[in-house]
Design a protein around this nucleic acid. Structure first.
Lengths: 294, 294
DNA sequence: CAATTGCTATCGATTTTTTCGATAGTATGT
DNA sequence: ACATACTATCGAAAAAATCGATAGCAATTG
């Protein structure tokens, strides 16, 4: 479909403002002949008269006036695109699509978001919460810009930035604490240990950190979220391993004891991931430092 | 200021839909190289990346997605202009700026507008009520398309279409009717005759139709509208001449008698005026016939 | 009433932009 | 390693936008 040109709409607007081809041409920084031809071309496209060529002064037709109104809108809209583009040119401003795994998002983000918003008020974080492999796939496709996740995790062609190491704690129902005074990973009762369902990296990290065997048939005890897991422990169904950020009082029910391990403590690593050769790498590093210090 | 092109925005939209340069190029009926260059040019203008060139699939950046949304809007708006232009190509559709004089508008228009709207439902009448010389000036400038007014009136370079002849009636307070059984224009009492202020053609037409001398000092009795005039007569300030369309019962107060003249009755002519060589002449003639028959 | 002024329309030449076709380059999958 | 399926890039060709000059036309001036 043949469409008017933005240029032609500019010409029309100038003509409406100046009521004169020559004056309008000056405004548009073109010669009068150019503008004249432009308006004529526009009339041809629309198959409709836009101006009544009086000898003395040029006047727009009713349709011409109507069209000028729309034209102004359209130009204004396109200018908004450019303005927006320039506005977000500064580092850590504009939209940033951040993927976060479910065992980090609800605990860590509330801690850091206020500080980030304060430091980077023009940053528009779009949060996407999903499992590690899913957000990795999305960042590979380019549907996400940055990931906040737990290592170790294979992320080919990506830059990983280590942020901090996070210890695991043992969560068990009150009164069922192990009698030992010191707790080491070897003392865990595999039978009563509840874990997240497959796909959550927390499950794999916990198992690896504690040197456990891959439990074979635990489906009956697998949960879909840490919150669910905590509730199960709270009701005496068993024990579980919680990352430190999930152990804050306000997140836990009354009937749970949280016990820390002896050295060497089991841990997971938290960090950022972005596409190697992303033009925003330095921005992401800045953001990472801000997250650690938040 | 440098601006994106509508073409480039099209390219971006197609790219967003297809997630592939080649496929998008097909949609836009250009070669892949053209579309590739177009997107790059757009990115240069905006100084901002729009797509992340993955090997597998192309994905838009956050800003790219945001921009696509605006782009769709903009294209839609421009298409509305063209659509509107084509829509009003049929005769007697679309906007029509009609100038009407104050001694016609409030009486005649209510009679005919319903019928016109029924016959030409897509006609968008924009009414402008003003004195004859003002609306003539405006139609000369091209700010109006058509005039509904009273003749005789000088309208150089205009086409006049006669619609109908309208007799004048004498309006006087009840009980002050002339004693004569037959009323002729010669019997008018000039001293008690109230007229509209200068500028209203009705004043001139009434004077001419009745063969009166130009009254010299009547300012004290001049009114700004026929309605005012009627109220003055109603309150016994004198008599006046009313065109037939202003004599319908619902327009007149209780205390007024309306008397018709003997032949030859004084009259004014009602008609249409448009710019000679207006491309819409035949439309206007159709509209004129519809006004007479309404 | 002829000359001048102040407009817009139009034409051919020129410059600029757009588009194409071909090809290079680069991951992916067989 | 080879074929495949992409995008980027380059020079040539086609299309367009623009310019400068000029014609034409009405209003105004001398």
């Amino acid at each position: 479909m043949i469409r008017p040109t933005l240029r032609q709409l500019e010409y029309l607007i100038a003509l409406e403002e100046e009521k004169s081809f020559s004056a309008a041409a000056d405004i548009c920084n073109v010669t009068q002949s150019t503008l004249s031809a432009g308006i004529k071309e526009l009339e041809n496209i629309l198959e409709q008269n836009l101006v009544t060529r009086g000898r003395r002064k040029v006047t727009l037709t009713a349709f011409g006036v109507e069209t000028t109104y729309h034209a102004r809108n359209i130009l204004h809209e396109t200018d908004k695109i450019t303005a927006r583009a320039h506005q977000i040119k500064a580092p850590l401003t504009g939209p940033l699509r951040l993927g976060v795994i479910p065992t980090i998002a609800p605990y860590f983000l509330p801690q850091i978001l206020p500080s980030l918003q304060e430091q980077f008020p023009a940053l528009e974080l779009q949060l996407h919460e999903d499992l590690s492999d899913r957000i990795v796939k999305k960042i590979e496709q380019g549907a996400l810009d940055l990931l906040l996740m737990a290592f170790p995790f294979e992320t080919p062609n990506m830059s990983q930035m280590f942020l901090f190491e996070e210890p695991f704690y043992l969560a068990c129902p009150k009164g069922q604490e192990p009698r030992k005074t010191t707790l080491s990973t070897g003392d865990l009762d595999i039978e009563s240990l509840l874990l997240l369902e497959d796909g959550h990296c927390l499950r794999d990290h916990a198992i690896a950190a504690c040197g456990l065997q891959q439990p074979s048939m635990r489906k009956a005890y697998s949960a879909t979220s840490l919150q669910t897991l905590v509730q199960m422990v709270n009701n005496g169904f068993g024990t579980t391993l919680l990352p430190e950020m999930a152990t804050q009082e306000q997140n836990l029910p009354k009937n749970i004891s949280v016990l820390s391990f002896n050295e060497p403590k089991p841990t997971r690593q938290i960090g950022l991931v972005w596409r190697k050769n992303s033009p925003r790498s330095t921005e992401f590093e800045t953001l990472g430092r801000a997250m650690v210090n938040a």
